[in-house]
Amino acid sequence: MSGRSRWSLRLRLVGTLTILVLVATGVLAVVAWALFAVASALGLTGSSAEAGTPLPLAGGTVVLAACLLLLVHGRYGYRRTLESVDARPVEDGDPHGLRERVRRFALAAGVEEPSVAVADTDEPTTFTVSNGTDATVVVTTGALETLSADELEAVLAHEVAHLANRDATVATVAATIGSISEGLFARERRLGEWIRFLLTIGSVTIVLALVAIPIVVLSAFYLLVSVLARTVLAINAISVGFHARAREYAADRAGAELVGDPAALASALQTLDGAGPPNEDARRRSHASATLGIVPYALGERTDADLLEESSLSRWIPDADSELDRAEFVAVLSRLFGRIGRALEWRPATHPPVEKRIERLRNMSRERVRTVETG
């Protein structure tokens, strides 16, 4: 990677960290404000609270807490990502020579040798996860079965290139920070279930007076959590998008230089892109394994605790293909609601188009051939 490209990537990574700190600061500030508002409403704050806390001190405390949150989250997110895909470390018995190949590329790139793990799943992909001190290259059994020897070699070089470019740690934090919005979406679903339950029992007139206040309070929290979850998701999308394309292009180029064969990496990308799930749900692509992967395939099954679960808010939106389409004016509203529902389930793109990556690598291969011929 050229010096200009290297500095461009590093500036993008710094920008990503800045955005993440702002996201964490905003989340903590909103949570602190909500807790203080509830405590004040219940009369739990003492007279000393009336004087208030100096704004600079309060702001500095929240920013420091946000930085600590990201630090802890980076350490925790590393382990959580590996556990979420059930990645098993490669120790004895390495028929594909993964450890030896990674060791060789790490030595050539001048970086500390990462661990290597295999995830037993059909999705053909690889990714590198790092917490700043430890790093692991994960390869799926689907990738081992799909890629040729030369393609596997090129893919491993691509993963080591992420470490050489020093983007793996920032990308890991950016990918796993989505768990904040993931947790908020899970709480949104629970609040939605409680609201529906109260509305159901409130349909009995005599009970309505008893549940009216809880419904109002839960609805207020529901809206707060929904807005906060989507705000975090949107800002995190900006942070991921700010560096994602640059980091993948940089790793493609550096990986091709490490393996010495850009065409092999181009072939690997084409193979992986064609062998993956034909209808991968966009919501699944926000999973850490998809965000970090050489191609955006999420590993593992959907669970109720995942961000990948359909948002409870979208359940309140009528489907655009419902029977309401019979009347023209209702059809317009139905299409509008359908668009809103799809917008609520929007997830950011985490990778540049595979076609563009392949074209860049093929151009790089042609340049190498011309250099050899003219040299």
Score class of each variant (00 low, 15 high):
residue 14 V to G: 10
residue 246 A to S: 09
residue 57 L to Y: 01
residue 284 R to C: 06
residue 179 S to E: 13
residue 124 P to E: 11
residue 36 F to C: 14
residue 75 R to Q: 14
residue 323 E to P: 11
residue 246 A to E: 02
residue 56 P to W: 00
residue 25 T to L: 04
residue 362 R to P: 08
residue 202 G to S: 04
residue 31 V to R: 06
residue 188 E to L: 11
residue 280 E to D: 08
residue 19 I to G: 11
residue 259 V to P: 01
residue 153 E to I: 09
residue 251 A to Q: 13
residue 289 S to G: 12
residue 78 Y to E: 06
residue 256 A to T: 02
residue 369 V to W: 13
residue 128 T to L: 13
residue 272 L to T: 00
residue 54 P to T: 00
residue 61 T to E: 05
residue 30 V to C: 07
residue 29 A to C: 09
residue 310 E to K: 15
residue 81 T to Y: 13
residue 135 A to I: 08
residue 237 A to S: 13
residue 61 T to M: 14
residue 340 I to F: 02
residue 357 R to F: 10
residue 94 D to F: 05
residue 311 S to V: 14
residue 301 E to V: 12
residue 28 L to G: 08
residue 370 R to Y: 10
residue 180 I to Q: 05
residue 256 A to Y: 02
residue 207 V to M: 04
residue 254 A to S: 07
residue 107 L to N: 05
residue 45 T to H: 09
residue 20 L to C: 07
residue 355 E to Q: 14
residue 200 T to I: 10
residue 329 F to Q: 10
residue 200 T to S: 06
residue 157 A to W: 02
residue 157 A to D: 04
residue 194 W to E: 12
residue 227 V to A: 06
residue 89 P to L: 13
residue 170 V to K: 07
residue 361 L to Q: 05
residue 346 W to L: 02
residue 47 S to K: 08
residue 271 T to D: 03
residue 29 A to L: 11
residue 277 P to N: 05
residue 50 E to N: 09
residue 207 V to E: 00
residue 92 D to S: 15
residue 146 T to A: 14
residue 132 G to Y: 09
residue 219 S to G: 15
residue 115 S to G: 15
residue 355 E to K: 11
residue 34 A to Q: 04
residue 332 V to P: 00
residue 362 R to V: 13
residue 363 N to A: 15
residue 154 A to R: 04
residue 121 T to Q: 09
residue 147 L to F: 10
residue 7 W to M: 15
residue 42 L to N: 04
residue 179 S to L: 14
residue 200 T to G: 13
residue 194 W to F: 14
residue 234 A to W: 14
residue 223 L to V: 15
residue 342 R to D: 08
residue 254 A to R: 10
residue 242 F to N: 04
residue 315 R to N: 10
residue 144 L to T: 05
residue 66 A to Y: 07
residue 196 R to F: 09
residue 174 A to H: 00
residue 330 V to K: 14
residue 281 D to Y: 11
residue 293 G to E: 00
residue 262 P to H: 01
residue 162 H to R: 13
residue 268 A to H: 01
residue 119 A to N: 03
residue 120 D to F: 05
residue 352 P to I: 02
residue 241 G to V: 06
residue 171 A to V: 04
residue 281 D to C: 06
residue 33 W to M: 15
residue 295 V to K: 01
residue 182 E to C: 11
residue 94 D to N: 07
residue 173 V to F: 04
residue 99 R to P: 03
residue 147 L to H: 08
residue 166 R to S: 06
residue 39 A to G: 03
residue 26 G to S: 10
residue 319 D to W: 12
residue 258 L to Q: 00
residue 229 A to G: 11
residue 313 L to Q: 05
residue 123 E to K: 14
residue 228 L to D: 07
residue 364 M to D: 06
residue 247 R to H: 05
residue 243 H to F: 02
residue 265 L to A: 11
residue 107 L to C: 08
residue 227 V to P: 00
residue 125 T to E: 00
residue 251 A to L: 13
residue 246 A to H: 12
residue 42 L to V: 03
residue 79 R to M: 10
residue 270 Q to S: 15
residue 173 V to T: 07
residue 232 V to C: 07
residue 278 P to V: 00
residue 181 S to E: 02
residue 109 A to P: 07
residue 259 V to G: 08
residue 216 V to M: 11
residue 15 G to M: 03
residue 3 G to R: 15
residue 336 L to T: 04
residue 314 S to V: 01
residue 92 D to C: 14
residue 1 M to I: 12
residue 78 Y to R: 06
residue 33 W to I: 15
residue 235 I to C: 13
residue 234 A to I: 04
residue 72 V to L: 13
